[in-house]
Simulated scan of single mutants.
Amino acid sequence: MQPIIDTAAVSRLAADIGSPRAAASFVSRFTDLLDERILGIERSFRSADPTQWHESVAGLRSAAATAGAGRVQATATLLLADDLDARTALALIGQLRSDARIFTLAHSSLCEEQAFAERLAMRRFA
């Protein structure tokens, strides 16, 4: 099973960008847009346009990989299977929504933990 937050991916992002703060900002923005992206996937599924469907899911999978959302990425990969039937697709979209909620909660918790650690460090040096 994929990790909720792939810290290695977040570290790679920080190294690629050259800034841990910019990487954290990217992950926060990804998290903020996650529900909207999943709604777009649901709409493209209902539209029966395979190109739109593929682009929506592939875009989320790529962004999730960059942001370290391991389970979101894994579920999006399953959604791109060629032999996917409608019932399985709907179940996977539900799983994607659940994965997104878990990632959002984990990310929020991580941000709070980091802020707390920064406050403690400031007190030590004050």
Rank of each mutant, 00 (worst) to 15 (best):
R101V: 10
I17D: 04
G40F: 06
Q73Y: 06
T104M: 08
I4C: 13
H107Y: 03
I102V: 15
S28A: 15
T7S: 15
F125N: 09
R71D: 01
A126L: 12
E118C: 03
R123F: 07
V10Y: 02
V10I: 14
T88R: 13
R123V: 09
A117I: 04
A63L: 09
S62I: 05
A69I: 03
R21I: 10
V72M: 04
F26S: 08
L39H: 12
L33P: 00
A106W: 01
R124P: 01
R61I: 04
L120N: 10
T31H: 04
Q95V: 02
A69G: 04
H54E: 10
R101W: 07
R12A: 11
L34K: 06
A106Y: 02
A126Q: 11
T31E: 10
S56Q: 13
A81V: 01
L78K: 12
S108H: 11
G59P: 00
R46Q: 14
G18K: 06
Q114D: 07
E112A: 15
R97V: 01
D83R: 09
A86I: 01
I93A: 12
A24S: 13
F30Q: 06
G59Y: 00
L105G: 13
I4R: 08
D82A: 15
E55C: 02
D16R: 14
R101C: 08
F30L: 09
H54V: 04
W53P: 01
A8P: 00
A74Y: 03
